[in-house]
Design a protein around this nucleic acid. Sequence first.
DNA 1: CCAATTGTTCAATAACTTTTGAACAAAGGA
DNA 2: TCCTTTGTTCAAAAGTTATTGAACAATTGG
Lengths: 118, 118
Amino acid sequence: MTLPHPTADQISLPIVLAVLGDPTRLAIVRFLASKEGVPMNCGKFLDLASKTNLSYHLAKLREAGVTRTEAAGTSRLITLRRDDLDRRFPGLLDSVIAAAGEDKALPAVGTADTEIDA
Amino acid sequence: MTLPHPTADQISLPIVLAVLGDPTRLAIVRFLASKEGVPMNCGKFLDLASKTNLSYHLAKLREAGVTRTEAAGTSRLITLRRDDLDRRFPGLLDSVIAAAGEDKALPAVGTADTEIDA
DNA sequence: CCAATTGTTCAATAACTTTTGAACAAAGGA
DNA sequence: TCCTTTGTTCAAAAGTTATTGAACAATTGG
């Protein structure tokens, strides 16, 4: 039931970078970061990709150690592993998120549909 | 003759992250960062990959805007585009390089062969 | 129990990336 | 000029990643 997650020291920098290098996953992470503290389920990301495809990308993020996924009834709660990432790679997550904000080519985080029912 | 490089504002975050997510390219960037100021030609990276393969990876880095490549006789001078990257994505390059230093799974930068003839 | 909700798995496919060797090109020194 | 050095290009092969739809599983509410 409990899904496999790497421990903090198993998190690999190249894997984290490669995982964040995908625009869909970067958008997921930005959205998580913009709502830190608010529990997110997969459905919250449905405007970013199809349900099946989200399952794939969320698994990639989890396996890389970027997110934590916990079962909660029929839903899953997805959170950023900010503590682990900050301990392991200080400043990295913040600079990536800030950089994403600076990249005019990227869509703004938290668009219409995803905003409802916060 | 002059190879194509993106302008600073054409540099894309997801592309930079994806490019740095490859272990060979991350090693190249770490090596460049450890020798900033010292002009590097492709041959300096020959312990990281074959000549042909290096040509491929160095082109990726250049096209992403991470490095600059200038022709110099029969050689090419490769430099990190630190100024452009820092202006565009403040702190990102430094945190990636620092993170690479923290990642015990990555090989140490600047190994034997690459050290000769600095 | 039944139905709805939420998300996963599977197999197929498409698309991209990496790696390789052989052949080529340009510059510079003997 | 010829040879060496340095690096590129090309086509092929191998490997990897992303995307899709159909089928499945688990939980919860009626």
